[in-house]
């Protein structure tokens, strides 16, 4: 298969000085981004379920409102709980009066 023509070119066709290249370091393959959902650790729900879903809008005097909130603060109660405890107290009082 070899032809004589190239041999006649003498040193021109001496390819002994050419060698394979050393392979450059290839960067690691690019990964598809992890879905945002999977990155988060499962979150503990911070909502405090009270079962309080009804709204009561009440007109009252500034003094009664101030007393109500002062009581709530002093007893470290939420507004809803303060209202419920007040209603319970009133019911007990009514029961006592009835008996």
């Amino acid at each position: 298969m070899s032809r004589s023509g190239l041999d006649d070119m003498g040193d021109d066709m001496d390819l002994s000085g050419f060698e394979a290249k050393s392979k450059p370091a290839t960067p690691p393959p690019i990964q598809a981004p992890t879905p945002l959902q999977a990155q988060r650790t499962a979150r503990v729900p911070r909502t405090y379920r009270t079962g309080r879903s009804e709204t009561i809008a009440v007109k009252t005097t500034p003094e009664a409102a101030a007393t109500f909130y002062t009581l709530a603060d002093r007893l470290h109660l939420k507004v809803g709980e303060t209202f419920e405890r007040a209603v319970e107290a009133l019911a007990r009082e009514a029961d006592r009066e009835r008996n």
Binding site: M1, S2, R3, G5, D8, M9, D12, M13, L15
Partner: peptide
């Protein structure tokens, strides 16, 4: 195949083509 594997009865002007190609290859190598 190549110019080397073609035979003279398959194609005309083969020797001239080989000489021409050799000169080209030698110039690239230079």
């Amino acid at each position: 195949g190549t110019l080397g594997t073609l035979s003279l009865d398959e194609v005309g002007g083969l020797e001239a083509a080989r000489t021409n190609a050799d000169r080209y290859v030698a110039e690239v190598v230079r």
